[in-house]
């Protein structure tokens, strides 16, 4: 019964067991849900966009109102406590669409209400969405610069 000083060989075996015995994520199910829900949210987006195009907007012009409507739906679902349940099964199918972006802004805003409107809600609004906005802007800047230097047009 050796308690002291576990040797390196045992640790190595342990690391192997951890990998070998670790319960697997249900990959096939996760992918199916992500595809289905992600597709469905995009489909809703397409219908909303179609509605705005029917009002005489170009597909480009319809992009902004469509985004606003979807963000509104995502925010509402978050406020009612539905969106986290959807994401639990759909994973990236709910996180990747713009409704997931809304969830990432609204959830911390609601959460940190107890720390006040300025230092709670105001400060935490971008805790989750911040990385996406920051790196999205940085990447877009670099790409824009490269295109300017190389003289590429859209």
């Amino acid at each position: 019964m050796q308690a002291q000083g576990a040797d390196e060989a045992l640790r190595a075996r342990y690391r192997y067991w951890v990998e070998a015995m670790r319960p697997k994520k249900p990959l096939a199910r996760n992918l199916a849900w992500a595809f289905g829900v992600g597709g469905a949210i995009s489909e809703v987006g397409q219908w909303v966009q179609w509605f705005f195009q029917r009002q005489g907007m170009s597909p480009d012009q319809a992009g902004t109102p469509t985004a606003i409507v979807l963000v509104g739906l995502g925010a509402l679902a978050t406020g009612l406590g539905w969106y986290d349940r959807l994401t639990k099964v759909a994973g990236m199918g709910a996180s990747l669409p713009i409704t997931g972006f809304a969830n990432a802004m609204v959830a911390p805003a609601m959460e940190f209400r107890s720390e006040g409107l300025v230092l709670g809600v105001g400060a935490k609004l971008f805790t989750v969405a911040g990385p996406v906005l920051g790196w999205g802007m940085a990447a877009a800047f670099v790409v824009g610069l490269a295109r300017l230097v190389l003289g590429v047009r859209i």
């Binding site: 670790r22 319960p23 697997k24 994520k25 996760n30 978050t78 406020g79 406590g81 969106y83 986290d84 349940r85 959807l86 994401t87 639990k88 099964v89 994973g91 709910a94 996180s95 997931g100 969830n103 990432a104 609204v106 959830a107 911390p108 609601m110 959460e111 940190f112 935490k124 989750v128």
Partner: peptide
């Protein structure tokens, strides 16, 4: 949850472990 992980209403998938 709010201290160690994410806000309560933020959607995320839980890991089997």
């Amino acid at each position: 949850e709010r201290q160690f992980r994410y806000p309560v209403e933020l959607g995320n998938q839980r890991y089997p472990t």
